[in-house]
Design a protein around this nucleic acid. Structure first.
Lengths: 182, 182
DNA sequence: GCTCACATGTAATAAGTTACATGATTTC
DNA sequence: GAAATCATGTAACTTATTACATGTGAGC
C-alpha cells in the first residue's frame, strides 16, 4: 500500500489532481524514493474516495480539460498520520546493476565498461536534478530528504569512480563453471 | 521478472534447491539488493522448467526430506546472459523512511527521534552483516558488490548522524496546513 | 516436549505495470 | 502539421506477498 500512502501524503499539504500527483512522483521532491504511475494513482484515488479519506470537486478552466481536484478529509489526515506511525519503516532496494556487476564475467569487459559509463552519467544527471530541485523547494523536510539523496548519490559516484578499474579487472577473469552444463 | 532472473543467476554458478535459493536471497551475498520469498521462487522455478531453462533431479539423503536439486540448461545460460545484456540496468529504490522524514512534523519530535535511533541501529547491523559476509565470500564479483553496499551504508550512517539534529529541529516546527481540511 | 532448520508447495489476495482509448490546446 | 502538455480513466496481465498445509530430524 504505497501509492495510497503517497496520495494521502501529497494531499495532506494541499489539493491536487491525479495528473499532478503523478508528476510530483516522477519529477518532484519525492521522485528519488517513490514510484507511481497513472495506472496505480487513479484507481488509488478512487478507492480512497470510497473509504471517505478524500473528496473531489470539478474544476473547468476555459480551454483546458475538466480536472478532478482532490482534497484530503479529516479522516484522511488521521489515517495518514496513523499509517506514518504504524507502517514499519523499511526501505526497499533492488538493483539490477549490482546483479550485473556480480556476473560481469559473463558479459565481458567492454560491456561492463559501457554500463559503468552509463551509470556514472546517470548518477550525475540525478545529482544535477537533485541540486536544481534543492533550489526550488522551500519546505525544510523536503530539503532534508533531498540532501540525503545528494549524499547517497555522491557516495555512489565516488565508489564507482574509484572502483571501476577493479570491476573491469574482474570482468577479465575467466568464468568459473562449478558444474557441467546440462 | 526479477525472481526469474535471480534464479537463473544462482543456478548459473551451481546447482541449488528452491530452499537454498531463498536462503541466499535472504542471508547471502545478494541479500542487500535482492528480495525473494518461497511464494515467488517455487512457482518461478516451475515456470523456468516449462521453458526448458532449468532441469531438476531428486535427491534423497537418509533422514532428510527429499530435495529437488535444480540445475541450469544451456538454453538457460544463454537466456541469463541475454537478460543481463538486454534488461535496462535501473535500480529500484523506495523509502518509507524518507517519506516519514518528509512528514516528521506530523508525527512529532519524540517519534522521529526513536525512528532515527532504530534506523541507525539497523544500518549498523547491516554493516556488520556485510563485513561478516565479506570474510566468508571468495568470489571477486561478490566482494565488489559487498564493498558497494558497505560504502552506501556507511554514507547513510554518516548522513544520519551528522544531520539528525537538523531533522529533529524540523519536527519541532509547526505544521503548515495549506488548505482548510474538509 | 519444544523449537529450529530442512524442505516443497498452493491459494487467495494485493499491487502495480503497460498499453489502450480519448481528446483539447499550445508551442515549435 | 507535428509534438508536447494537460487530463482521465480502463483492461489485461504480471508479479509478488501472506498465510496455509505438511512433514522429518536434531538439539536443548
Amino acid at each position: 500500500m504505497s501509492t495510497r500512502k503517497f496520495c494521502l501524503a501529497i494531499l495532506s499539504n494541499g489539493e491536487a489532481t491525479g495528473y499532478e500527483i503523478r508528476k510530483i512522483a516522477q519529477e518532484g521532491r519525492f521522485s528519488h524514493f517513490i514510484d507511481a504511475s497513472y495506472g496505480s494513482i487513479y484507481p488509488g484515488l478512487a478507492k480512497l474516495e470510497t473509504e471517505g479519506l478524500v473528496t473531489w470537486r470539478e474544476e473547468s478552466t476555459a480551454g483546458k480539460p475538466t480536472r478532478k481536484v482532490y482534497s484530503i478529509t479529516e479522516a484522511g489526515r488521521e489515517e495518514f498520520v496513523k499509517e506514518l506511525r504504524e507502517t514499519p519503516v523499511e526501505d526497499f532496494f533492488r538493483s539490477s546493476f549490482l546483479l550485473l556487476a556480480h556476473y560481469c564475467q559473463w558479459v565481458g569487459e567492454d560491456f561492463i565498461k559501457d554500463e559503468i559509463d552509463r551509470r556514472i552519467e546517470h548518477i550525475q544527471t540525478q545529482l544535477n536534478d537533485l541540486k536544481e530541485l534543492r533550489q526550488e523547494v522551500d519546505e525544510s523536510g523536503s530539503l532534508w530528504t533531498i540532501d540525503y539523496g545528494i549524499a547517497m548519490e555522491t557516495a555512489s559516484l565516488e565508489y564507482l569512480t574509484t572502483n571501476r578499474s577493479r570491476l573491469e579487472a574482474i570482468a577479465r577473469e575467466p568464468v568459473q563453471h562449478r558444474q557441467a552444463a546440462e
